[in-house]
């Protein structure tokens, strides 16, 4: 507030936003009636507030190519995943069924030693990429071969370079892991966004592009998979 101002912008804002005590409000009302400049400043504060409210009353919706389930699909999926997570947290483990040698075998897995693991790569830092691949490789190698773990690696926009054939330094390791049935998913939304920007996205042949990263994560979490973000 300058020495020429009767009231500061902060006070006018607080008045505009209903943050003043009653006696302070009375003072501002009185000032605005007595002083035209205060009145104009007050009107300007209110007008700016109303303009901001008007500007965001209707905002453009995101274009979602994978919204097959209609509005709220993802949120419902997330909610289901959360319920599952809660159950995992309470029980400390979970039961899943999977196909093994043609049969359905119930498994009980501890959360700290998962047989079903989804690795979410969200960074193009080569060390992080390497960490994800090594993690998958270690799990697939297994200590004794008694179990057949299932691993998926999902790359969102941040980690998409892992699966871009012209970017990834790990094409051979990806191929080796794919031969052990590790599945790779490149986020379809991220690809679409890059292509809209004119970027030609070439992926390694092992990469699937049927899902957005989030949808894949939610899908697997619903099935009780362990999630790790790298």
């Amino acid at each position: 507030m300058t020495k020429d101002e009767l009231i500061s912008d902060e006070q006018l804002n607080a008045f505009t936003d209903g943050e003043l005590e009653a006696d302070e409000e009375n003072r501002v009302f009185t000032l605005s009636e007595e002083n035209a400049e205060v009145d104009v400043r007050l009107c300007q504060h209110r007008k700016v507030k109303e303009l901001v409210q008007h500007a965001y009353r209707d905002v453009p919706k995101p274009r979602r190519h994978d919204n097959k389930g209609g509005p709220g699909k993802n949120l419902l999926s997330l909610a289901a995943a959360a319920v599952l997570l809660l159950a995992v947290g309470l029980v400390g483990g979970w039961t899943v069924s999977r196909s093994l040698d043609g049969g359905s075998v119930p498994l009980v897995a501890a959360a700290t030693n998962p047989d079903t693991l989804l690795l979410h790569v969200a960074s193009s830092d080569p060390m992080r990429m390497q960490q994800a691949l090594d993690r998958a490789e270690a799990l697939m190698a297994g200590p004794d071969g008694a179990t057949s773990p299932r691993v998926e690696i999902v790359a969102n926009e941040g980690g998409l370079n892992l699966l871009r054939s012209d970017m990834t330094p790990y094409a051979r390791q990806i191929r080796r892991l794919a031969e052990q049935d590790v599945l790779f998913f490149a986020c379809s939304k991220a690809i679409e966004r890059l292509e809209e920007q004119g970027v030609s996205v070439q992926l390694v042949p092992e990469a699937n592009t049927n899902y957005s990263a989030l949808d894949r994560v939610v899908h697997r979490m619903q099935q009780g998979w362990t999630y790790e973000k790298i």
Partner: peptide, 20 residues
């Protein structure tokens, strides 16, 4: 819009994970 959508999805995801 795309980034905003991603942020909201990430927010929902984290909220569900941290709701306890």
């Amino acid at each position: 819009p795309a980034l905003a959508d991603d942020l909201v999805q990430q927010t929902c995801y984290q909220a569900l994970r941290k709701q306890r």
